[in-house]
């Protein structure tokens, strides 16, 4: 499909919701636009949504990963710059700004977790700053960077990594791994006992307890990841709808512009709030892992 040619708004939006996918295309899979079938299994960029789907699990969303890692590097770079310049003398503006965020995260952690903040607070800081940066990409107009890239031959591009469930769930499940790690580290065998004997404290009901507790354990990261993804994805769709409205004719231009501004301003709140919620829930889960029942 040539750049910028869409039959209707639905197609436009659908196109913008496809990630740039690099993956293993299986032998026998249908090619796009009636291009026959794949003869040998090989790794390639997906030409369309159907191909990306055909790749299954063995594929990467290159745009999500590049933006996520890039933004993570920028975030860590900024934090590291501040950390290296950190000194007890009067700080500059940049230093103050970073320290304000760090202090805010530290205080939030202290409010929830009444122990040594050292491992939890930096984790929370990473989450808050990084998720915020990834969410922030949503405020960039939807076609500002993807369109030039499309002209250069990169068919798909989604800038905000948090609109990709792989990214949000990836982070959420890493949080689960940390929860399990700290549970075992703090409680040892007590963790297994906790899984086996709550909520019913008898030998007979161990399987039931295990089932309930494991579902409970898994539901945390799933809800954590899907909450962020849902909010960001829904916001993205609205942005795309407004962007589609821009193309609907001169008459709709002021309306679209007004909506764009309104939604963007509203989203400034949403992106900070979602980053904050992700952080606070992580702190809560990790502090629960540290506490005995």
């Amino acid at each position: 499909m040539a750049a910028g040619e869409y039959n209707d708004a639905g197609e436009y939006i659908a196109h913008h919701l496809v990630n740039l996918t690099y993956g293993r295309l299986q032998e026998g899979a249908e090619r796009c636009y009636g291009g026959g079938v794949v003869e040998t299994t090989h790794w390639t960029f997906a030409g369309c949504a159907a191909e990306a789907e055909a790749m299954g699990f063995m594929a990467f969303h290159v745009d999500s990963l590049v933006w996520a890692v890039g933004l993570g590097l920028i975030t860590m770079g900024l934090l590291f710059t501040a950390a290296r310049k950190a000194s007890p003398v009067a700080p500059g503006r940049f230093q103050c700004f970073i320290e304000m965020i760090v202090d805010f995260v530290g205080n939030t952690t202290k409010e929830v977790f009444h122990g040594r903040v050292q491992p939890i607070a930096p984790i929370a800081l990473t989450i808050f700053t990084w998720v915020f940066m990834m969410n922030l990409m949503k405020l960039v107009p939807v076609d500002l960077i993807p369109y030039p890239l499309e002209l250069m031959g990169v068919e798909y591009q989604k800038m905000a990594p948090t609109t990709d469930p792989n990214v949000t769930l990836g982070m959420a499940f890493f949080v689960l791994l940390m929860v399990i790690y700290y549970s075992i580290k703090v409680k040892g065998w007590g963790f297994l006992k906790e899984l086996s004997f709550t909520p019913f404290n008898t030998w007979v009901l161990i399987p039931v307890n295990l089932l309930l507790e494991i579902i409970g354990l898994l539901s945390k990261p799933i809800s954590l990841g899907l909450r962020l993804f849902g909010n960001m994805f829904a916001g993205e769709v609205i942005f795309l709808l407004i962007a589609a409205l821009f193309g609907a004719g001169l008459f709709f231009l002021p309306l679209a512009a007004g909506l764009q501004v309104l939604w963007a301003i509203f989203h400034i709140l949403v992106i900070v709030l979602q980053a904050f919620i992700f952080m606070v829930l992580t702190i809560v889960y990790l502090s629960m892992a540290h506490e005995d029942h």
Binding site: A83, Q118, P122
Partner: peptide, 24 residues
């Protein structure tokens, strides 16, 4: 689609968390 991006993101997250705990 659900794919290896999930794993990639986990690794990236782990590295950033480690960096933050260690150096920031």
């Amino acid at each position: 689609n659900f794919n290896l991006t999930f794993i990639g993101q986990m690794i990236a997250f782990a590295v950033f968390v480690w960096f933050c705990i260690k150096f920031v």
